[in-house]
Simulated assay, not measured.
Amino acid sequence: MNWKELLENRNRLFWLVHSASWFGFALVHYLGSLLHDPRDIFVVIIFLNAYAGWLFTVPLRYLYRRVWNFSPAKIAVVVIVASYLVGVLWQVVKNINHWEIYKHGYRPDFWLYYTSNSVYSFFIILSWSGLYFGTKYYQMLQKEKQNVLEANSVAHQAQLKMLRYQLNPHFLFNTLNAISTLILVNENKIANGMVTKLSEFLRYSLDKDPMKKVTLNSELHALKLYLDIEKVRFEDRLCVEFIAADDCKKALVPSMILQPIAENSIKYAIASQESGGTIKVTVTRFANDLLLELADDGPGAEIKNGNLYRENGVGLANSRERLAALYGSDFSLVVANNSPKGVKVSIRMPYELEINT
């Protein structure tokens, strides 16, 4: 049986702890009895007493369930009274076992003697009650902790999905408008190719789970689809270069991590210049880090403390938040001026490979 499954099952955990505690009680008393060199029959009495304690404390579980939502003061009163009554009853049984079996039918002069040493039994039952409440509170805390973790996980996933799907709607509108124009001028072959690439790109962006990572090959393929679509719009005004080291092509990266950055370059570096420009994507590995770099040769932008200041620009903020959600503090996203002109965005993240199971 899985231990985690056992601990999460309250009923199984109760019977396990309940039985183990009384077995431990019997074992301790047996080891203690060896110091006094009793007759062998004393072992039977020890385990009969432990069994009686095991049996008498079971009803306490159902009593404590009923008073669980009472105020702490009322619960304390119920626990003390119930523990004392069960302790007295248990002590009577223990005395009968001892006198009837070990003392060969001994009878005390006064019936009240059957309850002698009840204080000791009361403290044993009170300890059992403490163990019960402690175990139950532990289970509650674990359940609450699990609920908090699940809630955080759900919120985390929702945040990533929200960030991942913040694609610029203008890209879709511009692409559809370009396709419509191509059809009007009877460039059906180019329009058909553009539709095919658009559908493949959208399928990729919607199918990939934002909580999971994809290989760099897959990510670069999606980015090429996006840039190929844009090249139909900008024609010779857009040039694209891809340089990826061979040992990086199977590395894992967040899906759609480069597309918002490329979209910014299209908007601010290519579309803003009559002559267009070049977008260069470079991927290398340094020690245990994967380095992704996307640079353009546009007019540049204002950069302060590694932050890019552009009106209505959300691509970099989107990418930075996704990286923080996936890698915590183990990443960097740096914006710098490109040489001789333009903007360069460099991303560092852990170098990870897909594990085949």
Rank of each mutant, 00 (worst) to 15 (best):
E235M: 13
Y114T: 03
A324W: 04
A52Y: 01
S21E: 01
T357L: 11
R39T: 13
N318K: 02
L353P: 06
I266W: 01
H156I: 00
C248M: 06
S205V: 11
M1E: 10
V185R: 09
K213Q: 15
E274A: 15
N2M: 04
L290A: 04
G315I: 06
P340K: 07
M162E: 15
Y113M: 15
R107P: 04
R10F: 04
E293P: 02
S129V: 06
Y268A: 05
Y113I: 05
A191Y: 01
S83M: 08
N97G: 00
I279Y: 06
D246R: 01
W15K: 03
I261C: 09
A244E: 09
Y102P: 00
N188D: 13
I347F: 09
H29L: 15
V81T: 07
D236V: 07
E274K: 15
A301H: 08
I179K: 01
K344M: 09
T196M: 11
S71K: 12
F173P: 08
W99G: 04
P59K: 07
L323G: 02
S275Y: 08
I45W: 00
E293N: 14
R107M: 15
E293W: 00
D246A: 12
Y132D: 08
G105Q: 07
S33F: 05
V88N: 06
N188P: 02
E352I: 10
V335E: 13
S272P: 03
L141Q: 09
R164S: 14
N217A: 12
S339G: 02
I279M: 07
W15Q: 04
V345R: 03
V283I: 05
